[in-house]
Design a protein around this nucleic acid. Structure first.
Lengths: 332, 332
DNA sequence: TTGTACGCGTTATCAA
DNA sequence: TTGATAACGCGTACAA
């Protein structure tokens, strides 16, 4: 009690050699029943537990670890992603090691370094900062899968959402519904996600013959309060939009908050799923996809590369989105 | 490229001993500039990365790992809990290792075993099954903190929510609002959480002079569909309740779904916070607490025990709840 | 300033 | 069937 004994301790108590303990515990079957009983008794009495990393030390065998780097698990998106990765990965009896990168760019690098130092067999990363160089280097040393973004040279496997397609569909939908003044509540251009969704929005508008009225587009910082401010600014003018396309979860909720507070009607389409959207007081539509599926795909790509090696050409997958309607939105 | 080289590889390339590499990398300053340069060059060329668990192997030093056992990270509650634990723990440069227990009881044990095999320095566990015996044994071998539940003999540190108090307050509130027929949409008795919240509900009713009308109480399985069914059954009778107290997140949403579907009014109070409750079309009140705070407390208790040793008496903390009102609920 | 010997917990290999 | 020895990758202690 107090500390966990080693195999040597067990061996001493059972008056056998450590090898006999090892053989007994792994069920090699080449141990006499008498000694085996003594070993098992000693294990029980001492509360021995196997030491996995000492085992891994031997003959450079694998660590049995897979790393996951995200900014913030409290964000449901990352949490669901983690669940998906874990489901796939734990099926191969690999354990998930979490590296929180925080919001700053440097944290991402620190996190990945820390995981690599633990000799994870692979890494699932949601890149945030423009730290492509670092990841590009890392992916030559160990399997790396990027999620929601891909490296500039696409050297690492990646799983992304069809951000462009989903945004374009939503954008066109709003035009087809007859909205003349449509606002885009966008994201920082630092992220590929933000860029793609904005491109999709613009493409949708253009395809429907709308001029590039960039004045209506609002690009936001990561802040939630900022999203609220932009909504009020956007809606307070004389020619306020009749529809808003929000580029992510946070912005969608900000738009809904504006409707709830002002009481004015506003057609809202948002990117990212919201579990409780069906209970909202205002009808909304959402460009949805499964974060868990994203995680599963990432896990599968990672396993494939862990087995296949670093030399094979990188694979890139994209998962589709669905436009879902909640409340009375379907009838608009 | 391909695999990560060892210190020995670097030493060979730089034509020095491994010790010189080690000293150079740790910046001991006792290495000649010439050799140091050779070492650094070799490190760069080979892409050497430090191996943390080989370091830890030496003289049984610490693993730098902390384990977290939860059933399902996709559940926002667990995800926020994980964030809280990670925040505290990563401050001490400890990394978080996940052990997903799945929903079956056996998984919990497997997960904890797997983490212990990795020699985590401590374990944060959200117990699900009645596997107290196992955990009670484990907590004599390494620091264990249980969350939302405490072991039968209270041998391990624990952080819980004031389930009883929060439920009692909500229960009384409904009576004070004048509701005569109040239903409790409860949880399985297998969990301490479910038991406590039901006890609190009953206590609140009794304190207000209400007889123990157990007929109204519905105990649910873990199923979401089951919650919906029970809501419909509950509300379809001739003397349907005018208020429902839902024992958790899932049940609260089921109650809201009933209101959304039927259009009938119903006073709802639910346990657990819901991020978007303010946007719901029906007013509700929630017994809230911060899952992240729960995680932080757990992390702090764990650190304290890691430092203080297994012999000190176990500590138990409970965090308070707040009753919050959303929509028009405050005016009811 | 640099290198050698040893230990950490476990297992592969070979010897008894 | 059992045990002794070496090895894994690194750090500590000591010797050169």
């Amino acid at each position: 009690m107090g500390t966990i004994p080693t195999m040597r301790d067990v061996a001493q108590r059972a008056r056998v050699s450590p090898m006999t303990v090892s053989r007994t515990l792994r069920g090699e079957g080449t141990v006499g029943p008498e000694l085996a009983a003594r070993v098992l008794a000693a294990v029980e009495e001492l509360g021995y537990r196997h030491n996995d990393w000492a085992r891994g030390l031997k003959s450079g065998s694998s660590s049995g670890l897979v790393g996951l780097v995200v900014t913030n698990l409290a964000n449901p998106f990352y949490a669901e992603l983690a669940t998906g990765v874990d489901r796939v990965v734990s099926g191969e009896s690999l354990q998930l090691l979490f590296g929180s990168s925080g919001d700053d760019g440097g944290g991402e690098r620190r996190a990945a370094d820390g995981l690599a130092a633990r000799r994870v067999e692979g890494l699932v990363v949601v890149p945030t900062a423009d730290d492509d160089d670092f990841l590009a280097q890392l992916c030559h040393q160990l399997p790396v899968v990027t999620v929601t973004s891909r490296l500039a040279d696409a050297q690492a496997d990646s799983v992304t959402v069809d951000d462009f397609g989903g945004a374009r569909d939503a954008s066109r939908r709003l035009v087809l519904e007859g909205h003349e003044r449509i606002a885009f509540l966008g994201l920082s251009h630092a992220s590929r996600t933000g860029e793609e969704r904005e491109r999709g929005y613009l493409a949708g508008q253009e395809e429907c013959g709308r001029p590039r009225d960039r004045a209506r587009i609002v690009t936001l910082a990561a802040d939630e309060a900022e999203a609220d401010r932009q909504m009020w600014r956007l809606m307070s003018g004389p020619e306020a939009p009749t529809a808003v396309f929000a580029a992510n979860n946070r912005n969608t909720i900000a738009a809904c908050r504006w409707v709830a507070a002002s009481g004015d009607p506003l057609r809202i389409i948002g990117f990212d799923a919201i579990r409780t959207a069906g209970l909202f007081r205002m009808p909304i539509s959402l460009v949805e996809y499964s974060a868990e599926e994203l995680g599963e795909r990432a896990g599968e790509l990672l396993l494939r590369r862990i087995r296949g090696g670093l030399e094979e050409p990188p694979r890139h997958e994209a998962i589709a989105t669905q436009l879902a309607h909640y409340g009375a939105a379907g009838t608009l």
